[in-house]
Design a protein around this nucleic acid. Sequence first.
DNA 1: ATGAAAGCGCTAACAA
DNA 2: TTGTTAGCGCTTTCAT
Lengths: 342, 342
Amino acid sequence: MKFEAVTIKDIAKALGISTSTVSRALRDSYEISPETKQLVLECAEKLNYRPNPIALSLKEKRSRSIGVLVCEIANSFFSQVINGIESVAYDKGYNVIITQSNESFEREIMNLHSLSSRSVDGLLVSLSTETNDLSHLEMLHKKGLPIVLFDRVTDEIETHKVVVDNFKGAYEATEHLIQKGYKRIAAIANSEFLSITNERLAGYKEALNAYGIKYNKSYVKHCFYGGMVFSEIEDAVNKLFTLKQRPDAILATSDKLSSGCLKTLLRRGIAIPQEIALAGFSNSDLAELLNPSLTVVRQPAMEMGRAATELLLQLIENKRPVVQFEKRILTPELIIGHSTIL
Amino acid sequence: MKFEAVTIKDIAKALGISTSTVSRALRDSYEISPETKQLVLECAEKLNYRPNPIALSLKEKRSRSIGVLVCEIANSFFSQVINGIESVAYDKGYNVIITQSNESFEREIMNLHSLSSRSVDGLLVSLSTETNDLSHLEMLHKKGLPIVLFDRVTDEIETHKVVVDNFKGAYEATEHLIQKGYKRIAAIANSEFLSITNERLAGYKEALNAYGIKYNKSYVKHCFYGGMVFSEIEDAVNKLFTLKQRPDAILATSDKLSSGCLKTLLRRGIAIPQEIALAGFSNSDLAELLNPSLTVVRQPAMEMGRAATELLLQLIENKRPVVQFEKRILTPELIIGHSTIL
DNA sequence: ATGAAAGCGCTAACAA
DNA sequence: TTGTTAGCGCTTTCAT
């Protein structure tokens, strides 16, 4: 059951003029007499005319909507990014179409296809943890679809990128742990496919190195599904606990992994930070309210969403092809809680 | 810079046949010979043809997209609802366009207008805490736009609704507090315009009543902006603390209010539950990890999103006008933590 | 079994 | 200043 919308045709008929006159009057064209404009405007108002954006899209070959792909909407980091995206898009008159991969490569491909075939004007993408092959994105990119990558990016695609200084974030968190006297620092990370995994682990290793602590491979655990399966995190933590040289601290390198670690430790009744300290990347508003309050690397998530959207709209609205791409690097913030200090 | 998409025209030209034949072949019409079909399909495949959804929308007068209005995306409850919405919509081939009101009435109106004028096929709406006047929604509804309300609903609009049993949730939480020995139970709620406010406060009052505790008006504080401004919550808590008969427990009736209360209490260094107990509606995954673990009324948020979307799609895809509307009431769950028990 | 043509709502080049 | 017409990509009636 649909409601019949008023079209310029209706206005034209009502006024006994042509549709093009109506169209021009509505767009306030210089070639229409003030009287006619007045008439048309009044009539449009009276009939409650609303331009049909679909007809416009068909004509202009643009939909004024942008597609977003994140791994999970219900994740504090990503929901904050989306918040930023929505706010900028709204201001510029764009719609935001959101999809989630649930960290599945297959789903990522399907979403990307669906979005592009629904003719979004551009794409804002954060890769899934399973993603290793980028041909699907590469194809869309080559076709000329504007794409901006954020958070989980890749060097294989030349376009604007917005990330946080992951190296710095992990370095500072690790340094903090070291300075607080922890020596056997473990790390729990996503799959090795992800840029954030490698950058964060690099920061972690460099901090160890800077303080003369030997890097121990068995202290690093990967969660291939990014913690979408809770048992993955549990297993990782449990494995760390079976090591003869048990770690005295853990650095969790994502939101989901941080909360998963904390949950596992609390459920096992392990004292934090007495038995083991915990620091993690997290954007939850509740970090400071946790038990114990969590030492976190916090990312300017909303800012990331805003920046990515601005860059994308710039790309979309640029007449000439952009050749110079920008990688915007935002600064994370280390917030110290009681999970690393008594 | 746009990329030229392949159209049926291109296929027709390549094959030296008419566009209508191509169109029919692609839709597997019975009137096309198997050979032609084969040819067309192969050619479409080769040219990587993708139907233009916008052209289809224009023709069919439907966009296969639904609009969502929530007050805030970066809120665990709503992001979980959106998760549910996205999953059902994805399965059914619909796009989800998300907007947020930030609890502003004005923004709600603008979003709703924007969504409807962008010809979404239907709307999934949760009202802002400022919303008292429903004429904007009423208008769209009268025009025949399918609408399903969820969580924050109103009786003024006759359509499908999906809510949680707010009365029950608040009743049980209050009852739990009473059974644990608390006698002076305060409540912090959103604006009185909201259905959830009234239903939850009704459950709270009824529980007090059932246990012979007199309802004390000064124990109930409203946050008009739903806690979008943190100081609002702080003020509410502070006011409770200035009462001569200081409350010994607080029931916070929304996600944002729960975390805001906890934050205020922790920052003031107030012992929970010794000095004051705290229970609240919350859908955060971290509730059990808080300090202290929070007694919460948890809503089946994802389920709510799924149900609302199913009802909306049913409404959209129904040929004949629906006259019998359904109010689906989901059951909340009380999860007991240490914020109400030592 | 296939093609020609109209039409969805709108804009714009061209005519008048 | 205004009207006529074609066309955006696709479907569909009506011819053939």
